[in-house]
Computed example of a mutant assay.
Amino acid sequence: MIIPIALFNFENGGLHDGRRNLHLLVDAFHDVDAPPAVIMLCEAKQWHENAHRPLHQAAELLSDRFGTPYVGVLGHDTRGPIPPAILYDPTVLALRCWHDPAEQHVFADKRNIAIFAIRDTGDHDTRAVFAAAVAHWDAHCGTRRRQQAALLDRYGTTDMPVIVGGDLNSTASGAHLPQRDWAAAGYRARARKARRHPDGTWAADTDAVDHLIGRWNPDTHRRVDGCGFHAIAEIARMANPHTPLLPTVNDGINAGGSLLIDWLLANTAMRPHVDPDSYRVHVPAQRPYPSDHRLVTAALSFDTPIGQAR
């Protein structure tokens, strides 16, 4: 059973100058053929308004695009009305757990995490089960991003397969990843996303993502330490060295160049289910861009039932 997945930071949830254009969301999927079974979205800005009408409209528009009856759920964000969201195909997946953002007595490490059962892998008690966590980390402070990484770290070695998708607002260590010329960036950008060395030079702050996937060792070309997560971009690169590791922010957005900051991460239990040839960063066909970020897609494969009902 193939489960296509997608990750997209939809700039301001389509809201610009007081008007919302959700057709831009459809535009981002212009070159996607297989309907994603799970779409993880960041910046669902004010999608809770008017009885969640923007959320339902987004689901309807993508349903029309793919011929798939998407259902949407809104997540929680303490920073304001800009939560993440998940759209999913209920003919493929049964949603078993998702904490409503209005719930007050929920541990922070359980928010924005959906548990899905795959319908065609068995009956209720034997179906394959996995978790999909959607994250949008703080853009202003590396210390807060590291704290947000800590909320996910225990899922790295759980028995249940877990996929994390999100705009993590940070790259990881390793010269094989897209780099940014921090000297060309303004001080404010450097203070948010980089660290200054004692000699006065700046380098990307990678602590938060590295906490989950490990630090890059340039001698062995492998990651060390980490909490059990693996970047699907690097899984793809290991399987095929010609796989391009493209920035996930569009050209001309960030002075000094764009980085790979929109990540799909698989925990140890999920890694065997990742199709390494499926990873793709979709470069928009034309300007104006649908968003300042690029769509990222991949696919998971579940051939046999795993785990138990949860």
Score class of each variant (00 low, 15 high):
H176K: 14
Q179F: 11
D181Y: 03
D181C: 07
W182M: 03
A183Y: 11
A183D: 11
G186D: 14
G186C: 03
Y187F: 12
R188E: 14
A189C: 14
A189N: 13
R190I: 12
K193L: 13
A194G: 07
P198R: 03
D199C: 04
T201Y: 07
T201I: 09
D205Q: 10
D205L: 01
T206I: 08
T206D: 05
D207Y: 15
A208S: 12
V209Y: 01
V209A: 07
D210Y: 07
H211R: 09
H211T: 03
I213V: 11
I213K: 03
G214H: 07
W216H: 09
W216S: 10
W216R: 08
N217G: 08
T220R: 14
H221G: 05
R223E: 01
D225C: 10
G226V: 13
C227H: 12
G228C: 10
F229Q: 12
H230D: 00
A231E: 00
A231K: 01
I232H: 06
A233V: 00
E234T: 04
I235T: 05
I235P: 00
A236Q: 05
A239L: 02
A239P: 01
P241W: 06
P244D: 03
L245A: 01
L246H: 14
L246S: 14
T248E: 01
V249F: 01
D251T: 12
D251C: 11
G252L: 07
I253H: 08
I253N: 14
I253G: 11
A255D: 15
G257L: 07
G257H: 02
S258M: 04
S258W: 03
L260T: 00
D262F: 02
D262R: 01
W263L: 02
L265G: 03
A266F: 06
A269D: 06
A269W: 09
A269Y: 08
R271V: 11
P272N: 08
P272M: 12
P272C: 10
H273L: 13
